[in-house]
């Protein structure tokens, strides 16, 4: 036995080090869970005063009065949903177009550079989008786009009221467009990867049967990738809902509910960014944290849904190969 003692000792030392190493990695993995759950729990805890005081009225009332101590978050909730909807209306077709261009149309040598250029759009810090939106894009909206929108779309039946209002450049329409530009690269990058995962034999068979490129996309690639494309769209939606700085610059921080998309409004993230450091009462601060809680829960659900849909194509993809 004594002859093997040194070896045993090294072995047991190795085993001890292994146990420590393993514990460190497990702990770090738990940390990711703790951050996510901790953020949700701390928002719920911080917002409890607002939820207790206002109950359901917190999300149904549009009365946001810091002086009177009344906090109803309908306006920021509405503004968040409307700007994200505008963003999706713009970003979804454009992103799918870009993905189609990058996978099927562009000459091979241009795919890398164009793909990188689109990805750079995602790398630009959101504060830069905000500054550009405030100083460059909003004036253009005010001077050229919104008067035109007023004169044309504003006259239409039913949707007219959405598009008539003072052309001041700052408002839900501008914010929605900026958000749309910001989420294009996220949806486009995932959609491109998804299209690239469509098994070539499927596409080749369709081409062999005489399909045009559009028919291959519309009847083979899109149906094959449908759930993952929806996942990509939800990923973009998750980004749009939580985007803060760009929206804060161009939304106008108003607390009035208005039908017109040209009017200033608010979003959950923008309200928090603008008002949190100025919130001077416990109830005010708690109301903003309660808003953060709602935002966090909704984005986590949207992003989880996106992830589930994206996981599915990987699994199908795994089976076919």
């Amino acid at each position: 036995m004594t002859a093997y003692a040194p070896l045993d000792r090294t072995r047991s030392r190795g085993a001890a080090a292994d146990r420590i190493f393993n514990a460190v990695t497990v702990g770090a993995a738990w940390l990711v869970l703790i951050v996510l759950l901790g953020a949700a729990a701390s928002m719920a805890w911080g917002g409890r005063l607002a939820f207790k005081t206002f109950g359901l009225k917190f999300i149904t009332s549009s009365d946001w009065d810091a002086v009177g101590g009344q906090f109803g978050a309908l306006v920021p909730i509405y503004g968040t949903l409307v700007t994200s909807a505008i963003a999706l209306i713009i970003a979804v077709p454009v992103s799918i177009g870009i993905a189609l261009f990058l996978t099927e149309i562009a000459p091979r040598w241009t795919r890398g550079p164009i793909g990188i250029a689109i990805e750079l759009l995602a790398a630009i810090p959101s504060i830069i989008y905000g500054m550009w939106g405030l100083f460059v894009f909003a004036p253009v909206m005010a001077a050229d786009v919104e008067p035109w929108v007023n004169d044309h779309l504003g006259q239409w039946p039913v949707v007219g009221p959405l598009f008539s209002g003072p052309p001041i450049g700052i408002g839900m329409l501008t914010a929605g467009i900026v958000l749309g530009i910001m989420i294009i690269p996220f949806i486009a990058a995932v959609a491109r990867d998804v299209f690239n995962q469509v098994p070539p034999p499927l596409k080749e068979s369709a081409i062999a049967l005489g399909s045009t490129r559009w028919e291959v996309l519309n009847r083979v690639s899109l149906p094959y990738a449908r759930s993952a494309i929806i996942g990509a769209i939800f990923l973009g939606l998750g980004r749009a809902l939580g985007e803060t700085m760009a929206v804060t610059f161009v939304l106008g921080n108003a607390h009035d509910l208005s039908v017109s998309l040209l009017m200033p409004s608010n979003s959950i993230a923008a309200a928090i960014a603008n008002e949190f450091t100025e919130a001077d009462t416990d109830l005010y601060r708690s109301s903003l944290i309660a808003l953060a809680f709602l935002l966090f829960i909704v984005t986590v659900i949207v992003l989880s849904f996106a992830k589930l849909l994206l996981l599915r194509i990987n699994r199908t993809h795994g089976r076919t190969h």
């Binding site: 996510l36 953020a39 990923l235 960014a273 989880s304």
Partner: peptide, 20 residues
């Protein structure tokens, strides 16, 4: 589970992280 939630955290609103 961690892999899944890590991707959620990756896109979660950064302002909420700030408040946290």
């Amino acid at each position: 589970v961690v892999s899944f939630l890590n991707d959620v955290l990756l896109s979660a609103p950064s302002i909420v992280i700030g408040l946290f």
